[in-house]
Design a binder for these strands. Sequence first.
DNA 1: GGAATTCCATGAAAATTCTGGTTGTGGATG
DNA 2: CATCCACAACCAGAATTTTCATGGAATTCC
Lengths: 226, 226
Amino acid sequence: MKILVVDDEALFVKGIRFNLQSDGFEVLCGSTGLDALRLTREEKPDLVILDVMMPQMDGMTACRKIREFSTVPIIMLTAKSENADKLLGFDCGADDYLTKPFNILELKARIRALLRRSGVEPQHPGGTLLTSGPFCLDSGSRNATKNGTTVELTAKEFDLIEFLMKHPNQVYSREALLDALWGDENRSDSRTVDVHIRRLREKLEDNPAEPKFILTKWSVGYYFRK
Amino acid sequence: MKILVVDDEALFVKGIRFNLQSDGFEVLCGSTGLDALRLTREEKPDLVILDVMMPQMDGMTACRKIREFSTVPIIMLTAKSENADKLLGFDCGADDYLTKPFNILELKARIRALLRRSGVEPQHPGGTLLTSGPFCLDSGSRNATKNGTTVELTAKEFDLIEFLMKHPNQVYSREALLDALWGDENRSDSRTVDVHIRRLREKLEDNPAEPKFILTKWSVGYYFRK
DNA sequence: GGAATTCCATGAAAATTCTGGTTGTGGATG
DNA sequence: CATCCACAACCAGAATTTTCATGGAATTCC
């Protein structure tokens, strides 16, 4: 079980490291937001602990950037003096927040709880797994499964369902989907999106005529319901 | 999205309830550990908030018993005076801990984070929440709720109420609304606005004949009263 | 050539707008 | 103060327009 700790106070990191190691965790360390990004990408830790105040790139920014490519559990640390409200209100995608100074027992308890809740699956080599309901997408092998049996998807189909599943319940207009998946050039007709949606429904929905996951928001666009 | 709050301090529960409801959650309440068990089993809430100190059955026992049949996300509350260590060390299966008194923003942030992590809720990734009185609009999923229950709105209806709620108490003439929501071209008859206002009242007001929120300023226009 | 992708046409469903009549409001008038 | 009047707002349902799903044809890309 690998944990990444990122904070610019060396002594503090050392303390945490010792404590977690003696609990049987493997501990990686960094001191800047850039470290956090790099190490998360390269080492694929099972959990990340991020201080808010850091040189080069602050913790919240780092957190948001990590969220762009990973769903690894993240615990943010903030000094008591800093106004925590900003952290609370501004959703950067962290799972937990802790104010320094804290009881080391509390940190450990929160790590345990978070690992338990996250399912602790060691990160998938290569790509990340995206699961929701009966579906599971593997962005590494670009395989899709429904209830464990694989479903053959074409490239565009995979891109589309992946995008929608990454942002469940968020409604996207055809234009927005074209922007995100087709890019600026060879922008197709917006009806093209409809066709791919239809194919996906035929392949993924139990009853394509009454879709339960790939839904239409009338006069707005499409979304994936989680 | 259903949340169960269990605490024996009625006033406290009432405050939480109000706060969560105005964020669009459906809120159930209880006052004993037995309530917690029963309601979790019967109502299957998406998240449970449990106070530690309660008559009949304390929160930690309730939590453990819930864990025997459910993996619902659980947040524990504990008074500052009580020694939190026991809670931390003794793993009862909760996902998060919070010491009273706490900032309501913090509770909300933790609820959001936990729901996101548990995969229960399709959180609002890009969309913002607009709440006022019993209403809550989510621009991401384009869902509207009243006292926690969703109300089906068409595209124009959503755009209109969103616009009015964004500028509460500000009166807009029909012309201004046409400008803002219909755009320069295909400018409809100004009576069209009336029709949409009527539909909104039918769907949102308790008594559409005596609107309390979507109000008319005679010979001027309409406005949303906060 | 075959699969994937894009485009097009059509009927159906839903939303939006329009219409005509009814009700309600506020000011003017005696 | 009571009554009347012009007009603003409301209502219900029909007509119109928009939007979507579907099947199939055309095109592109390996």
